[in-house]
Every structure is written in C-alpha cells, then in structure tokens.
Simulated assay, not measured.
Amino acid sequence: MIVGLTGGIGSGKSTIVKMFSQFDNIAIYIADDEAKKLMSTSKEIKNQLISEFGDQVYINNELNRAYLASIVFKNKEKLAILNSIVHPVVNEHLQSFIKKNTDKDYILYENAILFENGSDSFCDKIITVTAPEDVRINRVVKRDNTTIEDVKNRIKNQWNVTKKTLQSHYIIDNVDLTYSRQQVLKIHNYLTKYIS
C-alpha cells in the first residue's frame, strides 16, 4: 500500500515524517530529497536542465539551487518545465523503491506537490499536513532565512489547503507536537489494521 503524505510549504511535513520513522514496519520515500539527489547524479536530468535553463544551472558540477529557484518560483511555465524534466525520473526511482520494499506494511511517500504533479493517482491513501498560513510563513522565513514575500510566492505555486484536504483520507493538524504525535499513531494503527 502506498500512503501519500503532502501539505503546503511550512506545514511541517518533515516533522511528521520523523514521527512516522519510529515504525519499523514501513518504508519512507521523500520525493524532494530523492529529486535533489537525482538532479545532481542523473545525466538525463542534468542535460535537460542545462538545455532549458543554461550552463549556470550547475556550478562545479553541483546544482545551483538559488539560481534555479530564482527562475521557477516566479514563473509558473518554467516551474512546469522543471517538473516535467525531474518528475518522470523520480517516479521511475520510486517504482524501484516500492519493488524493493514489498515486505513492508506500507510505503509512506512524502511529496509536497503530490496533487499538483498527479502522484496522488497511485496512492491508496493520502495524508495532508496542515497549519495556519501565518505559522507556515514564519516557519519557512526562519528555516530558509528568506522573506515573507518569497514564501508567499512559493505558496501561490501550490494548491490551496482546502483543495488538498478535500481529496485526503487523513488530515494532521500540525501545530501542537503532542497532538501531532497522537494523530500519527492513530493513523498508523488504522493503516496497519486496515492491511491485516
């Protein structure tokens, strides 16, 4: 079973994934981490990114994230092009990860743009992590040392929370960590009972 986990920027998806990582009977795939690795190691992705965004997209063979972000987060068409280059390779990688982990009760597949890129279509269940927008903005400003305006631009490129939650099986309200832990345990117990 594939359980998608998503949520808007700053909702605390990574915190929730850490809470799920305590369970030995699941495997966790973090799309963003794997995409970053593949953007540095996949010749196919590298060649397409250079062709689309220019040579300065890599410096000393390392992805120039700041340069790429400055282009794609202000231009929806460029963001769509980036996604069309990276996502097929990530999806292929995910499929091989799923095959290697068939002994697990379920695979938790964390993807910030699960709905936006259509990955929800192969998830059996979906969890959306939420938090009030002002909390999310403050978290990202602190975490990324960025501006409120920059965070708002990134939020604009994601589906709104209501649209996500309406298509989710579970919602984790991630403000109080004790409450978040209780919700994670409850969902995990339900998912593992659901399987057996």
Results as ranks from 00 to 15, higher is better:
61 N>H: 12
61 N>D: 15
48 Q>Y: 01
58 Y>R: 08
87 H>N: 13
51 S>Q: 14
46 K>I: 01
65 R>Q: 13
89 V>H: 11
45 I>K: 03
65 R>T: 10
74 K>C: 00
84 S>D: 09
64 N>W: 03
62 E>M: 10
45 I>T: 05
88 P>C: 12
86 V>Y: 06
76 K>H: 05
90 V>D: 05
65 R>S: 12
73 F>P: 06
51 S>K: 15
90 V>K: 07
51 S>V: 00
87 H>K: 05
80 A>M: 07
89 V>A: 09
75 N>G: 11
54 G>K: 11
53 F>A: 03
50 I>R: 11
45 I>V: 08
93 H>S: 15
64 N>L: 03
50 I>L: 02
68 L>I: 02
66 A>K: 15
66 A>I: 07
84 S>F: 05
78 K>V: 01
75 N>C: 10
87 H>V: 00
89 V>E: 12
87 H>C: 04
65 R>M: 04
76 K>F: 05
77 E>D: 13
63 L>C: 08
69 A>L: 07
78 K>E: 12
49 L>Q: 08
86 V>I: 15
50 I>H: 07
59 I>C: 06
57 V>P: 02
69 A>G: 09
90 V>A: 10
51 S>D: 14
50 I>K: 14
73 F>A: 01
70 S>L: 06
44 E>A: 07
57 V>R: 01
78 K>D: 08
60 N>S: 13
88 P>M: 05
84 S>V: 03
80 A>V: 02
69 A>Q: 11
87 H>F: 13
92 E>T: 14
50 I>M: 06
46 K>Y: 02
53 F>G: 01
80 A>P: 00
55 D>N: 14
90 V>S: 10
93 H>N: 15
88 P>D: 13
89 V>T: 15
91 N>I: 03
93 H>M: 02
60 N>E: 14
66 A>N: 13
91 N>A: 07
73 F>V: 05
52 E>H: 09
52 E>N: 11
65 R>Y: 11
73 F>N: 07
60 N>Y: 09
53 F>S: 01
91 N>W: 03
58 Y>V: 07
48 Q>P: 00
87 H>D: 02
64 N>Y: 06
53 F>W: 01
62 E>I: 10
47 N>L: 07
69 A>M: 09
88 P>Q: 12
64 N>D: 13
59 I>D: 10
49 L>I: 08
70 S>P: 02
54 G>E: 04
74 K>G: 05
49 L>H: 07
80 A>E: 14
58 Y>E: 12
86 V>H: 07
75 N>W: 10
72 V>I: 15
52 E>A: 13
55 D>R: 12
65 R>K: 15
89 V>K: 13
82 L>E: 02
89 V>W: 11
67 Y>E: 04
70 S>A: 14
